[in-house]
Design a protein around this nucleic acid. Sequence first.
DNA 1: TGCATTTGTCAACAGGTGTTGGCATATGCA
DNA 2: TGCATATGCCAACACCTGTTGACAAATGCA
Lengths: 195, 195
Amino acid sequence: MFMTENHPKKITKSDRTRAQILEAARRLFAEGGYDGVSIRDVAAQASIDPAMVIRYFHSKDELFARAAVVDLKLPDQRTDPAMIGDTLIRRFLVNWEGPANGPGMIILLRSAASNEHAAEKVRDVFANQVRPMVASIGDPADAGRRAGLVASQLLGLATCRYLLRLAPVVALSHEEIIRNVGPVLQRYATGHDAG
Amino acid sequence: MFMTENHPKKITKSDRTRAQILEAARRLFAEGGYDGVSIRDVAAQASIDPAMVIRYFHSKDELFARAAVVDLKLPDQRTDPAMIGDTLIRRFLVNWEGPANGPGMIILLRSAASNEHAAEKVRDVFANQVRPMVASIGDPADAGRRAGLVASQLLGLATCRYLLRLAPVVALSHEEIIRNVGPVLQRYATGHDAG
DNA sequence: TGCATTTGTCAACAGGTGTTGGCATATGCA
DNA sequence: TGCATATGCCAACACCTGTTGACAAATGCA
């Protein structure tokens, strides 16, 4: 069934098609979410037969799981507590608009609204990536609350800018975002109440 | 077809069933979003035949439109600029958790992620309700930007607390939310940069 | 060259969708 | 009481969905 893999690697033709399918899926899932995209849509976008999508990825769920991989690349080492707000918002902009990073996060956010499986994945990203980073500064007992507030601002910004595409939020420059949202994240992450 | 309506009103039996259908639709749309709920689901929840749903509301789209009505009841009269952050966050909590207000906003937010029609409605709510309220204080030329920032925080809070149900955000008490988010909204709405 | 494996297409399945029209019942006015 | 109307159920439609298995073409090693 699979090629007899003695020597580790070999780029077969199927690897390329598999990659094409995955890329098509990522693009479509990012625009329509899990429910809004059919396997036939993905197949058409990849110029291939729908049956191949199932052959390479065994089900729509598995294809989605492969497409919705997220790594926020947050610095887990001790960050300068005085700069954490700035660090977070800059990292956010790179993750959502940078060229390298895939659209994993927008796929997840789009789908999470009406798909419990995707919602669970978002909660995983929060628990395993955002929360530890916020916990690395300040009181660990308080980390959940602070990370939750951070997430509320960042996911809201993402929702308005990339999901709903609210005109005034889309129009914000990176500098404006950093200048306005950075301090809010700083306050949330450090746990200092309003002053 | 319709009852010959000379004298204005009369509560017929059909009015009650229509209301039952609408209530069932609201409940289900709030949990599953537009795509996640079928007309058969609504019919079952209302203990009625699916055909009746179409007879009363002419299509799924129209049923959804009736279910997703939103009135934030923001004070459009000139609000005390020094209290606008507090006013906004308290109004937010009433709208999302108060007993009277329907689940219109959560229906919209859930569906907007993968349904362009619903997304457009959210943008309408922003443009016609949130923006004017923020514009009523401060420089009108700047209102869009400020209202956009306000929306990013409020929709993010709603996303985390009611949509994704992130544990630490769900656990926040009303007082904590008011104390933490209020000042942020205050700063966003008045347009004062970080200090 | 042959031949086994890989890569791909086609047709079909079982089930769910929004929507429609026909027909039975219940209601309420004369 | 009769009868028109309002209310409701049933069956079916055309279509889309994820998924499967059988069969054809291409590939690459001997």
